[in-house]
């Protein structure tokens, strides 16, 4: 009788172990091996990890990844929060805004890449034509700068709506009494934001930041379709590097080791940000 709940959980547990746990163990196993086509795999110990950490291509991809995620976070979070605050809180326009915000989120990732690929094509693209008008020669395939900001803008276009939706839901959940009290206390709009909106959104913002951090670290399909990681390796991020290593280079052992390193970096960053944000602005002192 008492065991019955476990029976209901069994299918889910099986699924999770098949889809996550077993692959993880496999990857850990692979990462210790040298696997070359045509030969038996043999044990390599930490060799793969050392080689990857010393690989300049990896270091470059990691550096670009951190810069990219940083830029994404410092743009999308404030922008998303700002838009959420500006959104109407009731009436017919709420629905309109939510639908508009939902559109980018509904498009599959590679399709987003293709849309932007079309935008940026040198022959028929909107962007080159537009910049040409101002006398700026835009080229995603030759200018690192153009490739970078295009990937950034694409990500911002694609994912800011998610931040808006999360923040909007958070703002709607703040009791209106807080705002009434702030008005009665003569708080300026900035102080109202600082002492009412922001503290009440702390939990929601932690979720938004973590989601965006992890997602931006995993970015793959869009830049792959848009720039193919170029020009050169200027828009090659960790995921692109990993898949090239594993699938393109047929080096499964190295690929597995890269994945693990990648996995730990994401966890480490998420954990640090989570702890920092949890303690931010919590409690004591105020502004005396």
């Amino acid at each position: 009788m008492k065991q019955r709940p476990w029976l209901f959980l069994l299918p889910a547990l099986l699924l999770v172990s098949l889809s996550a746990f077993i692959p993880l163990i496999t990857v850990i196993n692979y990462s210790q091996l040298t696997i070359l086509p045509g030969t038996e795999p043999y044990f390599a110990g930490l060799e793969n990890f050392v080689a990857i950490l010393e690989d300049e291509a990896f270091q470059g991809a990691l550096g670009r990844q951190i810069l990219f995620s940083f830029l994404v976070l410092i743009t999308e979070i404030p922008l998303g929060l700002g838009l959420a605050i500006c959104m109407p809180k009731e009436g017919p326009w709420v629905g309109v805004c939510l639908v508009l915000l939902g559109i980018p989120l509904l498009i599959p990732w590679n399709v987003v890449g293709i849309i932007w690929r079309v935008f940026t094509r040198s022959d028929i693209g909107v962007l080159p034509a537009f910049f040409d008008w101002f006398g700026y020669s835009y080229s995603i395939s030759s200018s690192t700068f153009d490739a970078w900001w295009t990937v950034l803008v694409m990500d911002i276009w694609h994912w800011t709506p998610l931040v808006v939706l999360i923040c909007y839901a958070g703002i709607q959940a703040i009791p209106k009494e807080y705002y009434m009290a702030a008005k009665i206390d003569r708080a300026s709009p900035w102080k109202t934001f600082r002492y009412v909106t922001l503290p009440n959104l702390r939990g929601v913002l932690i979720i938004a930041v973590l989601l965006r951090l992890m997602d931006s670290f995993k970015i793959y399909a869009e830049p792959f379709v848009l720039t193919g990681g170029g020009p050169g390796s200027s828009t090659t991020f960790l995921s692109t590097y990993t898949s090239r290593m594993a699938i393109g280079g047929f080096e499964m052992g190295r690929g597995a080791a890269t994945s693990l390193i990648y996995f730990f970096i994401v966890i480490l960053f998420s954990f640090v940000i989570y702890i920092v944000m949890l303690n931010l602005g919590q409690g004591a002192g105020g502004d005396q």
Binding site: P175, E177, Y178, M180, A181, K183, I184, D185, R186, A187, Y195, V196, L198, P199, G281, Q282, G283, A284, G285, G286, D287, Q288
Partner: peptide
Amino acid sequence: PPADRDIAQVFQFPVIYDSMDVYGNLAFP
């Protein structure tokens, strides 16, 4: 509007600025 009437209100549940201490809360207005 409410702000210009100088009428204070104590609500059903305590409305507190929890990023400030008690002193900061009292000092706020």
